[in-house]
């Protein structure tokens, strides 16, 4: 079976909040100097989900697909080092600043162009916009069922079986292939590529396609959601640290303050 994993390149999320800056005029995040972009966290976990299927069925082919800048080749290479077979890089000036619908239009067009795809995996949400809609939109555009928030994904007999994470429950859901599944962090940590695998990944094929290759024009990618403003919220909280020479004194001071504030 052929699995496509969609991986997005994002600014490194694992930075101190104090280093997080936004250029409000450009409506873009300004990464701290020297901090390279990374694969979106949940997308790397989606690659892990694909690899577990491949571990169980060696005839599985995994394609790592990314839509983004030319630098997104790095996140494809990371997925290939984890064990992916081939990459597809979707780059075009027409793809800059797409909304979710536009993003899903490009990705689903590329998946259709591949032709023989049985399962599409994405992260539950990208760690930049945190929308969590692209997987569902790809499914709609492919006419395939979608199952969101997977903690495990298995494939057998033309069906995908997913354990879903809900806030207060776990669900087992089945759907016929082809299907789209979005993967959550409960699936577990993505595997760490070995040096040998990283070297092997450098030789794996990455196809690059633009709008013309996918038969897409500006009208097909017109945004439905417009970003009006991006800003860092101002917090005016000033913490009151409890003084005291011992933990008991600190604890007593806290309880006193909570009582004064009528909180307990």
């Amino acid at each position: 079976m052929h699995i496509v994993v969609c991986v997005k390149q994002v600014p490194d999320w694992d930075i101190p909040p104090a280093s997080f800056k936004v250029d409000e005029a450009a409506k873009k995040v300004v990464p701290p100097p020297g901090v390279a972009p990374v694969p979106s966290q949940f997308d790397a976990i989606a690659v892990e989900a694909a690899m577990r299927i491949k571990d169980a069925a060696a005839d599985t082919k995994v394609t790592i697909m990314s839509l983004g800048a030319a630098s997104a080749r790095d996140v494809i290479k990371h997925g290939l080092a984890m064990g992916g077979d081939e990459g597809v890089l979707l780059v075009d000036d027409a793809f800059n600043d797409l909304d979710s619908t536009g993003t899903a239009t490009v990705l689903s067009s590329a998946i259709k162009k591949l032709g023989d795809v049985g399962l599409v995996l994405t992260g539950r949400q990208a760690v930049d916009w945190d929308l969590g809609v692209t997987g569902t939109l790809i499914a709609e555009m492919l006419g395939a069922p979608v199952i969101t928030f997977a903690k495990s994904v298995t494939v057998a007999g033309g069906k995908v079986t997913v354990e879903r994470v809900l806030p207060d429950a776990f669900e087992t859901v089945e759907a016929p292939l082809p299907a789209v599944v979005t993967v959550s962090n409960e699936l577990g940590e993505p595997r760490y590529p070995k040096l040998q695998q990283i070297m092997a990944a450098a030789r794996k094929q990455v196809n690059q396609w633009g709008a013309a290759d996918l038969g897409l024009d500006a009208a097909a990618l017109a945004p439905r959601l417009t970003l009006e403003r991006l800003f860092v919220p101002v917090t005016d909280t000033k913490v009151e640290i409890m003084e005291g020479d011992t933990p008991e004194e600190q604890a007593d001071a806290l309880v006193r303050r909570l009582q004064e504030a009528k909180l307990i």
Binding site: W13, V22, V127, D130, R224, L227, L230
Partner: peptide, 14 residues
Amino acid sequence: AYGGNARAVNSFAA
């Protein structure tokens, strides 16, 4: 957005 670091204001073109 951005893990709670930012706020995004959107309008609708549809």
